[in-house]
Amino acid sequence: MRRLPANFLLGAVLVSLVVGIAALSLVWTPHDPQTMSIPTKFASPSAIHWLGTDQLGRDVVAQLMAAARNSMTVALVAVLLGGSIGVALGLLASALGGWVEDGVMRLADLGFAFPALLFAIMLAAVFGPSLTNAVLAISFINIPIFARVTRASANQIWTRDYVAAARAAGRGRFAISRDHILPNIAAAIIVQATIEFAVAILAEAALSYLGLGAQPPASSWGRMLSEAQTLMYLAPQLAIYPGLCIVTAVLGFGLLGDGLRDITDPRLARAR
């Protein structure tokens, strides 16, 4: 076993930290994240409130933990939803080729014209801002990304001998896609998913900051920052913690993705 790359290890540590805290918040937070207590607003860090309280006296640590959970959930749903549609489209394009492939790839190109924010803006204008719309918008931008990666990797597998053998044995294109193509491109897809997870966390934070994502009273790092911005003169510390959380989470998943690619790519490269 080769030594694991440093980015993978650091990424794994950061990701475990964030995911661990998010999971912990399901069963335990130091206080209820939503309970207000005006008399103790803007409290300094203490044994009771480790990082103090906000303008409504809510416990900052509890809110950060709840926000971690929301952030992970949004990213997970968005990457799973957009990713599975994208992977399905990519497999389809690769299996059928011809005009189907061209069509899917043109659609993917089209998808790249819409950053998540533009899509979220459209949905918010029509349906009003909500976390669901944010998730949909982030899922949507994942579709073309995964479709491209899947098609590119799948096209390589289709040229392999064992695929030719399976086709000679009379197996259908969809059965081959499921049994031979998908397992062999799983590594590339997982790498992409890890990186897109980081992108999704960043996107959710930005959308929530802009008011297009999580709505009050739901906790979100982005929303905490937009509230903190108005209190910059009163309680600058409130603008620090959520940002650090975002950076930790995004850095963690980004490094983990890079590390996974470093681990899986040489093998893929040799197999090619």
């Binding site: 930005a206 920052l225 910059m232 600058p236 603008a239 959520p242 950076v247 995004v250 850095l251 980004g254």
Partner: peptide
């Protein structure tokens, strides 16, 4: 650059405002 990729632009903006403006 690794750090820059992970820092949200809006948070960086807030930090810049807190330092250089406030």
């Amino acid at each position: 650059s690794q750090l820059g990729i992970a820092v949200p632009a809006f948070w960086l903006s807030i930090l810049l405002v807190m330092l250089f403006a406030v």
